[in-house]
Amino acid sequence: MAFKEFKEFPVESSSLKEIRNFAREVLAKEPIFESSMDDIVLALAEAAQNIVKHAYNGQPTNDTMKVDINFENNQLTIELFDKGSPAIPQNIKPRKIDDIKAGGLGTFFIGQIMDEVIFKISTTDWVNHLTLKKNY
């Protein structure tokens, strides 16, 4: 089975629950995600949280962010697009393993869960483009 679905959400913290529910709904279509669904939803939600928190610095905006979920050839690809401040890749750092603080924990989770994390400045209408991949 292959599928591709996308949805746009307002860039605000209250969208995070909607994003999780969107992901759960999409992933539920394919039994292969049954055991990893919670992890995938967490990784996606952490990436979306980073957009609200860092790309927009927690400031109110009328912008939206786009979430694409694509499954093909046993590879799950999740893409997030936003129009916030361009991220500086060298500043996107997971926390050190023995560092007892919350900062960077979301990025650490994403790295633990996904097989591949690719960040680039978008060439389309968006600014930041994050791709998360997991192989099944």
Binding site: D38, Q49, L105, G106
Partner: peptide, 16 residues
């Protein structure tokens, strides 16, 4: 049922 890094930060800050 669900906790993300922000929730974990509350646990860490409370503990500290």
């Amino acid at each position: 049922q669900y906790m993300d890094s922000s929730g974990i930060s509350v646990l860490i800050e409370s503990h500290q």
